[in-house]
Amino acid sequence: MYESHFGLREAPFGITPDTSFFFKSPHSQEALNTLLVAARSGEGFIKITGEVGTGKTLLCRTFMKTLGDDFVTAYLPNPLLEPRTLMLALADELELPLPSDVDQHQLLKSLTARLLELAAQGKRVVLCVDEAQTIPRDSLEALRLLTNLETEKRKLLQIVLFGQPELNEHLQAQSIRQLAQRITFQHDLGGLTRDDMEYYLAHRLRVAGFTGARLFSKGAVRKLFTASRGIPRLVNIIAHKAMLAAYGEGRQRIDTHHVKLAARDTAVASRRGWPWLATGLALAALAAAGALLSYRLSL
């Protein structure tokens, strides 16, 4: 919509987890380093927690993309599954064909054989579980049992849990205490600092093709940090709306009042559903841009 207006190839502040936009802040880089060290050391369970919008899914995808060819990755984006269905999902990720009526014994036997086959090829298998705070406890126990599978040298399966802070409470249950004890590496993702956020904005704009000078004024950055509390998803949503507002006015720079408008819209959106309001803001921006163009043509 506004890409050509600001000299961009693509929108810089989307909320889909595009790994090309991964920003190596101290928090995210430390988390990525933790994941890579843990995976290469062959540990069984790894845990990454963070509040909603702090970039867990983007970190997960970046981690899987960063692992070398000697790793095979499996990804479960929605682990709200009972144990059998969860293991079937893992089998599917490992390209293991199974009959629909496979029994539990044969399922586990086939998974073990597949993991041994990959190990014989020199491959390490890492299962990344997103939204891990939603996993039922009996399914968590099934995962723990899968990590019992090992050769004399190492585990056949490593598991990385990405979840909201509720995951920590989940793991305190007495019934799964053995799993909690096996988590040898963990990291908690925080939000961006004020300085980090300025670099974050510049990074995403650069990836999107921006080659100009400062696009967000210093006042706009301060207001954006206050409104978003440094949470990357909120930064993206508010920055995107602020750019729409500036575009609607025909401005080439995002100032404080654009961010205020965007933050106010987002604050309302948190109660009523931001996509609908974002659409309204976009339509208003288009109308304003059209009016501005008509006015200039009439001169």
Rank of each mutant, 00 (worst) to 15 (best):
T85V: 08
L36Q: 11
V129S: 08
R84N: 09
T62H: 00
A132W: 01
H105P: 00
T57H: 05
E51C: 01
E82A: 11
D103N: 15
T112D: 12
A74Q: 02
A91G: 14
T49L: 03
E82Q: 14
S110R: 13
G55P: 10
T62A: 00
V102T: 11
L116F: 09
L115E: 04
K109N: 11
T57K: 04
V72G: 02
P26N: 10
T54Y: 06
G55D: 11
E95D: 12
L96K: 09
L80R: 13
T85E: 14
R114S: 06
N78W: 04
F45S: 01
L94D: 04
C60I: 01
F71L: 13
L96M: 15
L67H: 06
A132M: 06
V72H: 04
A89R: 14
F23H: 12
N33R: 10
S41M: 11
L80V: 03
T62V: 03
F71K: 11
T49H: 00
L88H: 07
F71G: 09
Q106P: 00
L35W: 02
F23Q: 06
L111N: 10
V129I: 15
L32M: 05
A74L: 03
L67F: 04
M87A: 11
L36V: 15
C60W: 00
Y75F: 14
L107I: 09
D92G: 13
A39K: 00
T54A: 07
V129K: 08
R114G: 07
E82R: 12
A31R: 01
R114Q: 13
L96C: 15
C128T: 13
P77C: 12
C128G: 06
L115D: 02
L118C: 10
K47Y: 01
Q29Y: 05
M64V: 06
Q106M: 09
L94I: 08
L76A: 02
L59R: 07
L76N: 03
S25I: 12
V126C: 07
A113W: 04
N33V: 08
T73R: 00
F23T: 05
L118W: 08
P83W: 01
V125T: 15
L86Q: 00
L98S: 12
I48A: 02
M64E: 10
R84L: 13
